[in-house]
Design a protein around this nucleic acid. Sequence first.
DNA 1: TAAGATTGAGCAATCAATCTTC
DNA 2: GAAGATTGATTGCTCAATCTTA
Lengths: 156, 156
Amino acid sequence: MASPLIVDPQDIPPSDYEQVSSALRDFYARAHRVVDRMMTTRGVSFARAKLLMHIVREGPLRSTDLADTFGYAPRTVTEAIDGLERDGLVRRDPDPDDRRAKRISLTPDGEKAAAASEAIRLEYMQALFGVLDAGERAEIVRLVGKLNDRLAGLEL
Amino acid sequence: MASPLIVDPQDIPPSDYEQVSSALRDFYARAHRVVDRMMTTRGVSFARAKLLMHIVREGPLRSTDLADTFGYAPRTVTEAIDGLERDGLVRRDPDPDDRRAKRISLTPDGEKAAAASEAIRLEYMQALFGVLDAGERAEIVRLVGKLNDRLAGLEL
DNA sequence: TAAGATTGAGCAATCAATCTTC
DNA sequence: GAAGATTGATTGCTCAATCTTA
């Protein structure tokens, strides 16, 4: 044993797993940064836009509905809604049928923000995913879909 | 105008852009959750493991080196190193050649942690990316690579 | 007891500002 | 003035605990 290292980098072949992993990781980090700057400077963040868009479509919702839809922890939803409420984009009203629950809905400002950020989102998606042709887009959906199915299995 | 909504969901065709976008987004959210639980319960988080592995390989490094390598903001690195130092996994020593800088290196405990988490990381990658065959892995690297190049352009 | 919501503590990241040294 | 590092304030996410109502 010439090296005091427990894992010698030489022993790890640069497998193609590494490449897949780092490509996907890089993509997310970059996409996150780019889209977030793009959207935040022009209105609300991507995370907030997702929530607003969902509330626009699905009407008044409870906190747990949002947590289920997006796979968030309860804390995440409370905090996100706190922020949106602070900025006057959503409202929490008592649920008439269940005194534990609150119904979350958009204010007029919230509807405007949702519409504006949806436009930006579409523009961004076109700029980004437009570099792939239709066949490539179908293929990437298929491949990432396989990974997602596997992950769902690992998550159990 | 029957609807008071500014953007009518009906007007947005469910384009395949949406599918690409949501597949990639889902992948990241799930992967992040799964790998983080997997690694944190058995030692250090994925984010920390990446740093440790890099420091193992590249020897003593400065804060800016890490920021450049991973594309992190300076704050991110300082905070990450703070945490690792608090847990006794890294050490900050003054750089003899530049009194502004510090050289970050692993402690013996840090080397152990790096080796342990590398093992878990390999196991995880195999479990996940093993669902794709070699051709599919090459293809996904190519496609995501195109997206990354585009993102790099958008980020300028 | 369980479900809906909130709160506390912590991690990983951002931007913007500051302090020291080059 | 610019580079290396740190700090303050904020966002988005996690888990675990708590409180109220069903």
